[in-house]
Design a binder for these strands. Structure first.
Lengths: 209, 209
DNA sequence: CAAAAAGATTGAATGAGTTCATTTTTCAAG
DNA sequence: CTTGAAAAATGAACTCATTCAATCTTTTTG
């Protein structure tokens, strides 16, 4: 059986994560004070800092959970994509976008992005970066899959094209969370429009019916 | 003649901007205390806050100056670009990148980007966003110019393609400032590689010599 | 089981950004 | 030259995130 100490530790960690996630959503990141999080989790402020390097670390931890889900939800689409380049891309990307606001608010995204840029060497920021890489690879893999199926022409550098699509969708998502008034639909439309030229140019000519 | 008050105000603002810029470069953003900036500029802390909403606002002000220069430096290239799509793009983009570290350190860039994401509604953040838009338009204009000269094929949505190139170069620059170890050369090479497929696909066939 | 070592917890103290009631300076009217 | 009002400047006080020396709990050792 696991030692008492290990169990207590896991339990405290769970309580803190839960308290923080709820508080972040309830009052926003800035207004959620460490003292409050600690109180809800029934630990002291000092204990919080034994588990997390700083306040931002805690937020990035919750974001990482979300991105992992997004990544997983993308797999079936990559495994069995629509037979049209732009449609396949949109299916994957819109899946990302639709999932993005399930657990997190725009405010939380903004803060998480800001932290991952400003403190790139904190453990959870590194994890965030890794997840970004994984998403980028997933897009590249989709292109590669389409190439194998003859939807995308041969001789295209799938890694380069995948990176380009990904950087574009990522940058546009950043713009989306920065603008509180921008809707998900608007985001999807804009990105689809931007993707169209490259998607069309790398596509093989349509088969006749 | 301008009133005494207006002159004093302009002078104080200049002193604060100068003090802040120098301190940021000397000791980094975090270590530069408002108290020190105020002392160097020979004003009180309170006065600092009469001119700038917060510490980050001051940094974004200095960044905005830098971006304006970059934008200006890009104009001659757009006016008279190399006759090859990828070369023209690289010329403009590398100009951006080379200029980026003249006044600002990676640390300052990271902080500025973080602020512009986290507090998008502060006046200087809005200016930063505007400048980003202007850069994006500049890239689109370059593509359009190449199209007019027959280097890029007709029927390409230059705004969409320009946005894609820009979002890619911007995202890659973010990655660059996040990674203290990444060199400018590495950044340029990576971006050129990513741009190649789209640049090639939108290019008109080479004229025979 | 006792004692020592290792691991965790604690919360008061620290320090930096930000606020705001008060004071000082400038300007315009009489 | 007053004087009242508007604008600006001020710095002590406040709010939090973060630290750390002291204390407590669990585990290991003899």
């Amino acid at each position: 059986m696991t030692g008492l100490r290990a169990r207590q530790k896991a339990d405290k960690n769970r309580r803190m994560l839960e308290a923080a996630t709820r508080l972040f959503r309830e009052v926003g990141y800035d207004a959620a004070r460490i003292e409050d999080i600690a109180e809800r989790a029934e630990v002291s402020v000092g204990t919080f800092y034994n588990y997390y390097e700083n306040k931002g670390d805690m937020l990035v931890a919750t974001v990482a959970m979300e991105v992992e889900e997004v990544l997983e939800a993308g797999e079936p689409i990559v495994a069995n994509p629509p037979a049209d380049t732009l449609e396949a891309l949109s299916a994957l990307i819109n899946q990302y976008y639709d999932h993005s606001l399930v657990y997190l608010s725009k405010d939380m995204w903004r803060t998480a992005m800001a932290i991952s840029i400003q403190q790139p060497d904190t453990p959870f920021s590194r994890r965030y970066t890794e997840l970004d890489r994984a998403l980028c690879r997933q897009v590249s893999t989709l292109i590669q899959r389409l190439q194998q199926r003859g939807v995308v022409i041969m001789g295209v550098d799938t890694a380069a094209v995948g990176a380009m699509f990904f950087n574009n969708l990522n940058m546009m998502f950043t713009e989306f969370v920065r603008d509180e008034a921008m809707s998900l639909e608007r985001l999807k439309d804009d990105v689809a429009r931007q993707n169209r030229p490259l998607a069309t140019l790398i596509s093989a000519p349509q088969q006749q019916a």
